[in-house]
Design a protein around this nucleic acid. Sequence first.
DNA 1: GAAAACAGTGGAACTGGTTCCACGCTCTAC
DNA 2: GTAGAGCGTGGAACCAGTTCCACTGTTTTC
Lengths: 346, 346
Amino acid sequence: MEAVPRKTTIRDVAEAAGVGVGTISRVLNSSSQVSRETRARVLKAIRRLGFRPNAQARRILRRRSESVCFLLSNRDFLHPFHARILQGVESCASGMKQHVLFAALHYSPRIAAEKIDLPHVLQEHGLIDGVILAGTIYPNLLRRMESIHVPFVALRNNVMGMEGKCGFDQVGFDDFSATLEATRHLTGEGHRQIVFAGDMSFPWFQRRFAGFREAMREKKLRPALVTAADAQSFVDFGQKVAQRIVARKPKPTAVVAGNDEIAYGIWLWLRRQGVKVPDEMSLVGFDDREEAVLMDPPLTTIRVHKEEIGRTCMKMLLERLHNPQMAFSQRILPTEFIIRGSVRRI
Amino acid sequence: MEAVPRKTTIRDVAEAAGVGVGTISRVLNSSSQVSRETRARVLKAIRRLGFRPNAQARRILRRRSESVCFLLSNRDFLHPFHARILQGVESCASGMKQHVLFAALHYSPRIAAEKIDLPHVLQEHGLIDGVILAGTIYPNLLRRMESIHVPFVALRNNVMGMEGKCGFDQVGFDDFSATLEATRHLTGEGHRQIVFAGDMSFPWFQRRFAGFREAMREKKLRPALVTAADAQSFVDFGQKVAQRIVARKPKPTAVVAGNDEIAYGIWLWLRRQGVKVPDEMSLVGFDDREEAVLMDPPLTTIRVHKEEIGRTCMKMLLERLHNPQMAFSQRILPTEFIIRGSVRRI
DNA sequence: GAAAACAGTGGAACTGGTTCCACGCTCTAC
DNA sequence: GTAGAGCGTGGAACCAGTTCCACTGTTTTC
């Protein structure tokens, strides 16, 4: 690449204003040690020359890049769920004059930590101050992150196989309490035969099932779990599982789905079979994605405040950067039960 | 923020390896001007000291940040459509050792160009080499971008009110030909009464309607347009418009929807009224979003290759950076007509 | 009235890389 | 045997900022 023509520097401005370079720097950093008249003269020169300070040069001295990396791991695409979190990160960052770098990574959970080929931003030094880990986070990635000595915050709900461990900062929401509340709502509406639909190989579905089980136990009801193998997607999983649900004896009157996509799959299959929601089957989702409100009937579900999670990740990372010695912590944000039209009283 | 402890520098490595700093630099940049033994000695010292070169320092000299900014304008959230484009940008960028900064911007189309408050990344100097403009792009933003002298590429389909102008690089897809092909498919399947549903205040719907109109004219059919006012969202627009469509005399047998969300709204309303798709009404969408395949019946639609568009934006921007004097161009990518189950032969 | 405090400023030294020139050494050409 | 080419290398100068020390002139303190 050819070189960009030389821009005006702080020294050009100093000469134009008839002052020293130190004074220009002091004006730029709004230090109080500059007289009113000098400041005015410098600002005039800056405007006249169209001077814009070079951020890179400052960064070397500050030893801070004022940037963080949003790292999406093992996702084929930027799912709306993560897109919303990224947006929350960005909105908080822009308020704090921080920049957000987006990077993607694909790695095997079985590969050795040191063999994980991190994105270029993380390999170079000084480009970012910290990382927000999104996507699926296996222990080897956590170890790899620790090895490069860059502070990071992880999306707690996406951490695999390290339940309870806390050698790093985490932000998440409470799967357990969310399905606990949702299931209590169902029992409160008179439902007795309720099933949970979710793939237990994911820890978040395990936690959601646990909340469901707890609410069922409170009412001395049998907590039933329905799963399916070989599903192509969550929607497909829902369709396969729906079939088994209606075949159960006694027939369930309500389903707590592991997420909105599973709920959608169940709804699709029921619809095709002529089973009416909520008249013949009540349905609760999880996530409150964009499409939940657009279903027919609109889906009763658990809202996860994705932007809020993103903002909290960013805030937490900044705290860590300010205070590297701070003890690691987990921040759990509340979910919200959203009652729409897919549950009926019986 | 407190200062980060000083890291090992190129001079530390030079001392450890018993060579000059220039040699370290040459090794790092894999210049051939280093003997085999010296290179080995330097690499060993680098590994022993855990040295990672500071990217900021290099950037000053190179006058290149090796970063681009993906700027999403006037969007309440990072819509899956743009999320896929961002992903395409990232995948191309990571292959070219470039970094991607994500930034959002909200501005009024009526504000003066110089009053637009650009994100912090664009205000500072030297942080990015170029910008990819996504979201909604009004003329004042284009003028603002020109004023800061940073090369940029715009998503052509999202540029408002500058049809045909080309004082900047653009990447897009051909709305006109896409609906032309889709409508020809409908007439080929025997449909005669076909309507187009879309909000004409958006230029892309105007272009899509034009393609529809052209195909209808070819067959000497009357191209009908149906719109609705005060819609909350595209889905809502679809629901409102569906009502008018079935009320038309003679009753249409097929609808070309402006996008998949409108198609979904139409489908929802028809379903609620007991109108069967495709038996009583055929339906074609536009975009091929994730959910199109999950509808019942799966939606026949026009696929836009979003990742490909993102990759092309990135490639084009890099070309511009290599060759700033290059004439501005527009790159139009093909769409793909995807036949699923929402159109029947009559 | 002298000493001390302090606001305001200039500029050298510094950050951590890259670049380029000078120099030493070896090898080839005549 | 010497000139010229060319490889390999050291290190000063550079990039564009910040920081800090020294200095001046003014004000305050006793």
